[in-house]
Amino acid sequence: LSDGTELPASAVVFAAGVRPRDELAEPAGLERAARGGFLVDERCRTADERVWAVGECAAVLGRCYGLAAPGYRMAETVAGQLLGSPSAVFPGADMSAKLKLLGVDVAGFGDVHARTEGAMEFVREDRAAGTYGKLVLAPDGRTLLGGVLAGDAGGYGALRTLLGRELTAPPELLLAGARTL
């Protein structure tokens, strides 16, 4: 480490908690990603071959995931390497999530920001009911690329199964009936 402390060749260091402490990277002589997190490669390894990072404190190839499922996949990657599979790599992760934030159901899946070239957004908002839904469609207007639900995320599971597929009904009906899909 930067303070001169030597780690044994077989040392494994890990941390768990609610807040990632990536400010510890610099004193340890490790690099941080531009937007935070210990910078790691596709094997979740830092520039120091003896140190891996997983979960919210890790920035795989510069990207922090911030969800539990990707953290589990990172841990599997590191475990594979420690058990003798040096070719184990983090394959990326599904960033879909269904959460309850301050008592409000929220879900997002796929291309939530409509970053796909030519993508179209269909939005349905019901202020009286306190619900919002957005479907992101491919340029053909029929293929689901992503979506966001807030206030009522009941249709999350069904809509997520349509990701990358042709819609089974018009977008307004899918969002209006999201609870009963």
Score class of each variant (00 low, 15 high):
1 L>E: 08
2 S>N: 12
2 S>Q: 12
3 D>Q: 10
6 E>I: 09
6 E>H: 07
8 P>V: 12
9 A>S: 15
10 S>I: 08
10 S>H: 14
10 S>M: 01
12 V>T: 07
16 A>T: 14
16 A>L: 06
17 G>T: 06
19 R>S: 12
21 R>P: 00
26 E>F: 07
28 A>C: 11
29 G>A: 09
29 G>L: 06
29 G>M: 02
30 L>K: 10
30 L>N: 05
31 E>Q: 15
32 R>P: 07
34 A>S: 12
36 G>I: 05
37 G>N: 05
37 G>P: 02
39 L>C: 10
41 D>K: 06
42 E>I: 02
42 E>R: 13
44 C>I: 10
44 C>E: 06
45 R>H: 05
46 T>G: 00
47 A>R: 15
49 E>P: 15
50 R>E: 01
50 R>Q: 10
54 V>H: 02
55 G>V: 05
57 C>L: 13
57 C>M: 15
59 A>I: 11
59 A>L: 11
60 V>L: 04
60 V>T: 08
62 G>Q: 08
62 G>I: 10
63 R>W: 05
63 R>T: 14
63 R>C: 11
64 C>V: 13
64 C>N: 11
65 Y>S: 03
65 Y>T: 00
67 L>W: 02
68 A>W: 15
70 P>D: 02
71 G>K: 09
74 M>H: 10
77 T>P: 01
78 V>T: 05
83 L>V: 00
84 G>I: 03
86 P>I: 06
89 V>H: 13
89 V>F: 10
89 V>K: 14
90 F>M: 00
91 P>D: 03
92 G>E: 09
92 G>S: 10
93 A>I: 07
95 M>T: 11
95 M>A: 11
95 M>K: 03
96 S>T: 02
97 A>Q: 09
97 A>S: 14
97 A>H: 04
98 K>L: 07
100 K>M: 09
101 L>A: 07
102 L>V: 04
104 V>R: 14
105 D>K: 04
105 D>M: 03
107 A>C: 08
108 G>V: 08
111 D>W: 01
112 V>P: 03
114 A>Y: 01
115 R>M: 13
116 T>R: 15
117 E>I: 04
118 G>M: 04
123 V>S: 00
125 E>Q: 14
126 D>M: 07
128 A>N: 04
129 A>C: 06
131 T>F: 01
131 T>I: 14
131 T>V: 15
135 L>F: 07
140 D>L: 05
141 G>K: 13
142 R>E: 14
144 L>V: 03
144 L>E: 02
146 G>V: 03
147 G>K: 02
149 L>T: 01
149 L>E: 00
150 A>L: 11
152 D>I: 00
153 A>V: 06
154 G>N: 02
154 G>E: 02
155 G>E: 04
156 Y>I: 03
157 G>T: 05
157 G>P: 03
159 L>M: 03
159 L>F: 04
161 T>E: 13
163 L>E: 03
166 E>N: 08
167 L>A: 09
169 A>V: 07
170 P>N: 06
170 P>E: 12
171 P>I: 03
171 P>C: 08
172 E>D: 14
176 A>V: 07
176 A>Q: 12
181 L>N: 10
181 L>F: 03
